[in-house]
Amino acid sequence: MKILHASTTVERTRALLGSVAAAVSAMLLPAVANAEYGLNLQEPATPIAREIMTLHNGIMIACFVIFILVFSVMFYSMWAHRKSRGYEPAQFSHSTKLEILWTLIPTLILVGFAYPSTGTLIAMEDTTESELTVKVTAYQWKWHYEYMDGSGVGFYSTLSTPSSQILDKEEQGENYLLEVDNHMVIPAQTKVRLLITSADVLHAWWIPKFGVKKDAIPGFINEAWINVDGPGIYRGQCVELCGKDHGYMPIVAEVKSKQDFADWLSQQKAALDSANGDTKVASN
């Protein structure tokens, strides 16, 4: 877990929830560690995704505890106050004190949920001070990425899983349905702003490990940001029903170190320039 400089209450709450979460999940869900099974959210790769994970664990544990408390009372009663044990029914039918109590306690719990969530949400929506902007445009059924640094670098990204695997004629490969021809490439340790839109119907851009999910809406641009911890390949999918091949438009982000990214981008620019040059020559 991230080491928190426990300064604000928000962070203290988060730290608390986080450690409870860690403790309880260590007890209850030993399989969490088993990444193959995936009983919980995917391993986060950005600060925001980590915050979400903490929030999620905290709430889940709290809900779990509430559930156990409420229903241990109920199941105890079902066992103890059975007719077959000869239990005579009491006849009480209300208690204002209890009603107030079980209105107040949930209210307090909810405030406890709302407070840290608000902090995280505000952070998520803050797209200022980004160092790189990538425009993401969704199509039925592919993605287009454009680097908004004036270079004009841009390309489509389409599913590359062979149809023989989809039609079950061949064994499904390792990254079945999660592989594309051209990766979206971004630098690590950099605040990257995404401008997400669509050219036809609704789609949604999501990479679980980044903790970013935003709808792509024709005619409008949605903003999101990511700041990935380190290099690697991260996979996601379109998550808004967009027609026949909604299940077949994956998202793959290749995160490179800053230096590698800079190299990649200049390479792309060079390729683009020479291509443009070629067309000029050709059309003359």
Partner: peptide, 9 residues
Amino acid sequence: WLEEEMLLW
């Protein structure tokens, strides 16, 4: 909102 989407409109 559409007014603000200079990039598109």
